[in-house]
Each structure stands twice: as C-alpha cells, then as structure tokens.
Amino acid sequence: MPENSRRYSQAVPVIAILIAVIVVVSISAFFIKTLMVKHQVVVGGDRIKRLETELAELNNKNEALQTKKDQLTSVPALQKAVSKGFVNLVKIDEKFVVNASHPRRAVAVAEKEDR
C-alpha cells in the first residue's frame, strides 16, 4: 500500500457501517410500519365486523319491538283488552260533548241541563 493511501485509510469503515446501519434501520422500520398498518387494518376490520353484527342485532331488536308494539296496539288486541277489562273506557256524558259544527247549541243544551 502506498504510504499516502495508508495515511488516509481508516481502521474501521465508519461511514460504510453507518450507511449500512441506516439502510437496515430504514428497511426494518418500513417493514415494521407495514406490519403495524396491516395489523391495524385487520384489527379495524374485525372491529367493523363486530360493529356491523351489533348494528344488525340492534336493528333486529328494534324491529322485534316494533312488531310487539304493533301486535299489542292492534285493533283486535285493544278490543280484547277492553272486553277483558284490562283497558277501561268511560263513556263521556252527552252534556259534556261539544259539537264542533254546532258549538253554541251544544253548550246551551249543557247549560240548560245543568240548571
């Protein structure tokens, strides 16, 4: 080796090692990040799936309750409830009924009867 070359050569190739380390770290970081993103996507997908299932279940529950409500408030069900005495209807006396098309006449009749 020429003398002047030896003077400038280094015992340890620091720059080369540094470059190699940077490259390795970058590549590793890239792959780790890729794996993390992929994992996030998978976890997110599972969460979406879980939420979708929950939403579908809630929709079903909502529809089941609507059906129940419709069944309980249907005309035949209410009629049955009235006949069993579960729902009590009190007949309003005629004198308390105000006829919208003849309000004065109805009120007059009521007042007359009250007297």
């Binding site: 579908a56 079903n60 059906t67 419709d70 069944q71 249907s74 005309v75 035949p76 069900a77």
Partner: peptide, 13 residues
C-alpha cells in the same frame, strides 16, 4: 341463523 316471519298484527281484519 337470522330468519324472518311475516306477521299480520290486525289478525282477521
């Protein structure tokens, strides 16, 4: 498994 049944709340009406 999810299934549906057709319901007629008004019955005979």
């Amino acid at each position: 498994e999810q299934d549906f049944e057709r319901i007629y709340p008004a019955g005979q009406l």
